[in-house]
Amino acid sequence: MLLEVDRVNEPVDVLVAKLRRYTEWFELLAPKVDKDKAHMTRGAAVHAFRLWSRIYPATGQEGYVPVAFVFTGKTAAQRASRIRGHGHS
Rank of each mutant, 00 (worst) to 15 (best):
E27P: 02
G85S: 10
A30K: 12
R20F: 12
R42E: 15
E62D: 11
H86G: 08
A45S: 09
A30Q: 09
A17Q: 10
L2D: 10
R79I: 12
Q78N: 08
S53D: 14
V8P: 04
P11C: 03
R54A: 13
F71V: 14
V12C: 06
V5C: 11
T72M: 06
P31N: 08
A38L: 04
I83Y: 09
Y56P: 02
V70Q: 11
R20P: 01
G43N: 07
V67D: 05
E24M: 10
F49Q: 09
M40T: 05
E27V: 04
K18D: 01
G60Y: 03
R21F: 00
D6K: 00
R50L: 15
R20I: 06
K37Q: 15
H47F: 04
A76G: 11
H88Q: 10
G87W: 03
R21Q: 13
K74L: 15
R42H: 14
T23R: 12
D13N: 14
I55L: 14
S89T: 11
L51R: 12
S81W: 05
P31H: 00
D13P: 00
A30C: 07
A80L: 05
R21Y: 02
P31G: 08
H47L: 01
Q78W: 00
A44V: 09
R82K: 12
V16Y: 15
K37G: 05
E4C: 05
A17S: 10
A77F: 09
S53M: 09
T59V: 02
D36G: 13
R7A: 11
A30H: 15
Q78C: 08
S89N: 12
N9G: 15
I83P: 01
V65G: 05
Q61D: 13
I83M: 07
L15S: 10
V14E: 11
T59W: 06
T72P: 02
N9V: 02
V12T: 10
A68Y: 14
